[in-house]
Each structure stands twice: as structure tokens, then as C-alpha cells.
Nucleic acid binder design. Structure first.
Lengths: 124, 124
DNA sequence: TTTAATGCAAATACTTTGCAGGAAA
DNA sequence: TTTCCTGCAAAGTATTTGCATTAAA
């Protein structure tokens, strides 16, 4: 039952409300008494990411994490310490990205430019 | 003999001349008949990165990669397909990054903003 | 019936760690 | 001697895959 699994995972991701790894989604599903296999979680998240229903990025430690985001084009500001994230849109930023990357012959595809820093709490 | 290992690894990284993983450096060292253990390569690369002698970033697939770079502050443009990279410096970019991140209370630390796209060759 | 999804266990790949031997101070 | 470095093997973690089972079309 593909559709049901999709929505189960999506619901879990929404509840978590932050970039979460497959493992974290899996744990959360266990806690909420949803019986899903770990591999199914991995497969479902990959599918959702391919369909642009969730965003996929990597934490500084290399773990892949997913999050339900606004559908419009945006980038992320990510906290290296606690993983908190905010989405932002900036025309200026897009233009500058284009300008810089085209200078070197590069083409930017999706919203593949995450900025890693420290959030307010973690930068004290 | 720490110093010797450091320079052996640095030499290898320079020869590779691109962002390379610990595994790749290790293979290269084997080919060039330098007998170093894999864990030593990992440990040495980590040390070099902490000392800011090499740059460390993550490939889109999550593998950690290292490269000898110019010592000044810069960012990277990374090809998602072949891994090619260029370094760039842009006052405008820095300012915009600062402006955007401070808007959300974030502080940017090192050169932790890599832009992933497709290089000329891979974007055809 | 034919196709697609699922769970489990096994297999990968990268990375870290414990430990004993050896080099350097 | 004392401390640090190294290599090997073992362990750990994240992720993928093979396969038999089951649900859906």
C-alpha cells in the first residue's frame, strides 16, 4: 500500500517538524505505533525527495535528512550545532549565485546551496 | 613520526589535486608505494583539517573529502556529478551571506557555504 | 494473474576505536 | 621511561539490496 505509507511517513516528518534522518523517522513511527520497516522508510523518503515533496540535505556529519518544506524555491540556513533550520528566499541571493556560478561555467540546479552556520542559541 | 606522515598525506592530496576522500588518498598512497595504514590516513586528514591546512567538505553522497586550498577565506563551487570544484572569493557574496544569516540570528563560521551545481562538462 | 510494495536479514561502504608494538623525547 | 604515533583488526553507523511474502490492480 504505497499511498498509505507515503502519507504515514509524511505525517511523521511533519510532526517532527525539522530535518530528520530516516532513522529518526523510523524511531518516531515506532513510538507512534506505526509498523513500518526501516528499509521502507528509506525507500519512501527517497521517493518523496525525488518527487520534490520533501527536501533532502546532508547534515554536517554526513547523515541524510529530510523535511517537509514550502513548495516554492528556497534555500536553507542550517545550524551546524543543533540542526535547526530556516528557509529563506532572496532574489538577490539567486542572482548572485547565478552570476558567480556562470562565471565558472557552472549551472545551479535545485535549491542546492545550503548555508551552514550557528543559530542564535548555539552561537552564544 | 607525525610530521613525516603529515607531509606524505599532504603531498598525496596535492598530487590528486581535487577533493578526495580518505579512501582515495589511501589508494593513492598505496600506488605510490607509501606504506600508511587507512586509519592513519583518516586521523591525519582530520588533524590537517582542524589545523586548517586542508579544506573539508562533504560530497553530495555524504562522503567526506579533503583538498589543499589557498589559505585565504573562500567558498567552493562543487559539481554534483563529477566532483570538480573551484574556489571563489566574493565580497558581495560574503556581505549577502552575513545579511541573510543575521536576519535569522545565524552566525556564519568558516567557509561553510558550498554551492552545488553542475560544471560545464556535466551540464551539457 | 500480473505488478508493485513491504519487511527482514544480509551485505556494503565509510569511519571510528581498542590495543599492542615501536619510535621519539 | 614516558609519551606519542602507527597499523591492524574489530566495532559502529548509515544505507542499500536480495528475496520471499503479501497486497493491490
Amino acid at each position: 500500500m504505497a499511498i498509505k505509507t507515503n502519507s504515514t511517513v509524511l505525517t511523521s516528518l511533519s510532526a517532527l517538524n525539522k530535518f530528520s534522518s530516516a532513522q529518526e523517522v523510523y524511531s518516531h513511527l515506532l513510538k507512534t505505533k506505526n509498523n513500518v520497516g526501516l528499509s521502507t522508510v528509506y525507500r519512501t523518503l527517497q521517493k518523496l525527495a525525488e518527487a520534490d515533496e520533501v527536501d533532502f540535505i546532508r547534515r554536517p556529519d554526513g547523515e541524510g535528512v529530510y523535511k517537509v518544506c514550502v513548495p516554492s524555491h528556497h534555500h536553507h540556513l542550517l545550524c551546524a550545532n543543533c540542526g535547526a533550520s530556516v528557509e529563506f528566499q532572496s532574489e538577490k541571493f539567486e542572482k548572485l549565485l547565478d552570476s558567480i556560478s556562470s562565471q565558472f561555467g557552472y549551472t545551479i540546479k535545485g535549491h542546492e546551496a545550503e548555508i551552514v552556520g550557528l543559530c542564535k542559541k548555539c552561537s552564544t
